[in-house]
Amino acid sequence: MEKTLHLDPVAGSGARDTSPRQVFLDACHILAHQGHATGLAGQVTVRDGDSSRLLTLALGTGLEEADDASMLLVDEHLTTLQGTGKANPGVRFHSWIYRHHPGVRAIIHTHPQALSALSMLGIGMPVAHMDAAMFHDDCGFLAHWPGVPTGDDEGALISGALAGKRSAFLVNHGMVCTGATLQEAVYLNVFAERNARMCLDALAIGPLQPVEPAAAKEAHDFLLQPAIVNGTFAYWARQAARAAKSSIT
């Protein structure tokens, strides 16, 4: 049975601007709309083409405030090359990941409530529902929090926790999601928070029943198809845009 989807990621919405800078803004607005904006914690970065330069937000800018003026282009040492301001010092561990995982093009790290709460239990990312199957055998676990990730030691530990996987769950902290595209990293980050909320709700009643590994592997591959990832991202971008528009009318 054919399980590969071929979707128009902007079906029914009109053509969207898919330039790198607009996708970056869409990513920030999606994360804010999905409840990932908690103070100044967390970072969004994406490689600038094939270089070691990164696009990120200026320190002090909330995800919902992201606009052209708040975007920075920085080098791997976080020196500002274009834009006004400086990068969040937490971006330093992103540089470690990019350096040691050349296939990674984008990184999302936020502190939403459910993921933060689940990280307090000292367990790896559970896969007990189909909507969490993208994390099956594809999520590392850092079992000891190294402290605020602004130094080289923390960067090395978090980079090592990925170990070739797309995501890593950090005890007493939260989630790091990477992607071959920024759309993929956002998709993983949003579904990680959804999974954390579901797990906490279920654990309040009883133990989790994990998805059978073969079924989880099948669902993992299905849910990470670019058509599904990109279509979901475009849908979330439209949601965030409508919400922003309604808030000012």
Results as ranks from 00 to 15, higher is better:
residue 48 D to N: 06
residue 127 V to P: 10
residue 152 D to C: 01
residue 149 P to S: 13
residue 94 H to D: 08
residue 9 P to I: 02
residue 154 E to G: 09
residue 233 F to Q: 12
residue 61 T to R: 05
residue 178 T to D: 02
residue 129 H to S: 10
residue 115 L to W: 07
residue 41 A to I: 05
residue 227 A to S: 15
residue 203 L to W: 10
residue 179 G to L: 08
residue 219 A to H: 11
residue 11 A to I: 08
residue 237 A to R: 06
residue 96 W to C: 15
residue 155 G to Y: 06
residue 232 T to D: 07
residue 128 A to D: 15
residue 68 D to K: 03
residue 194 R to N: 12
residue 5 L to K: 13
residue 79 T to W: 04
residue 183 Q to A: 15
residue 195 N to G: 12
residue 226 P to W: 11
residue 70 S to L: 02
residue 21 R to N: 04
residue 10 V to W: 00
residue 123 I to C: 11
residue 81 L to K: 09
residue 167 S to V: 08
residue 37 A to K: 06
residue 30 I to S: 02
residue 142 L to S: 14
residue 138 D to A: 14
residue 238 R to H: 13
residue 228 I to Y: 01
residue 223 L to E: 01
residue 36 H to E: 05
residue 97 I to R: 03
residue 152 D to V: 06
residue 87 A to T: 05
residue 82 Q to R: 12
residue 148 V to R: 07
residue 153 D to W: 03
residue 233 F to R: 12
residue 127 V to W: 07
residue 114 A to M: 00
residue 183 Q to I: 04
residue 24 F to E: 06
residue 142 L to K: 15
residue 44 V to Q: 01
residue 8 D to S: 09
residue 3 K to Q: 13
residue 210 P to S: 14
residue 244 A to M: 06
residue 139 C to Q: 08
residue 145 W to D: 14
residue 135 F to K: 08
residue 111 H to K: 13
residue 17 D to L: 01
residue 71 M to W: 00
residue 76 E to C: 05
residue 82 Q to C: 02
residue 25 L to N: 03
residue 3 K to Y: 07
residue 4 T to N: 08
residue 39 G to K: 07
residue 203 L to R: 11
residue 77 H to E: 15
residue 220 H to L: 11
residue 180 A to I: 12
residue 29 H to L: 03
residue 165 K to E: 02
residue 122 G to W: 04
residue 180 A to D: 07
residue 163 A to F: 02
residue 22 Q to I: 03
residue 39 G to Y: 03
residue 119 S to C: 14
residue 118 L to E: 08
residue 166 R to Q: 12
residue 64 E to Q: 11
residue 184 E to K: 13
residue 197 R to Y: 01
residue 74 V to R: 00
residue 7 L to R: 06
residue 50 D to E: 15
residue 242 R to S: 14
residue 36 H to K: 04
residue 97 I to G: 12
residue 60 G to E: 06
residue 121 L to C: 05
residue 193 E to K: 10
residue 33 H to D: 15
residue 7 L to F: 05
residue 66 A to I: 03
residue 97 I to A: 02
residue 23 V to Y: 00
residue 20 P to F: 03
residue 33 H to S: 13
residue 4 T to H: 02
residue 84 T to D: 00
residue 243 A to H: 14
residue 172 N to I: 10
residue 178 T to R: 05
residue 20 P to W: 04
residue 112 P to I: 04
residue 150 T to R: 10
residue 17 D to C: 01
residue 46 V to Y: 00
residue 198 M to W: 13
residue 31 L to V: 09
residue 55 L to P: 00
residue 129 H to K: 12
residue 93 F to H: 12
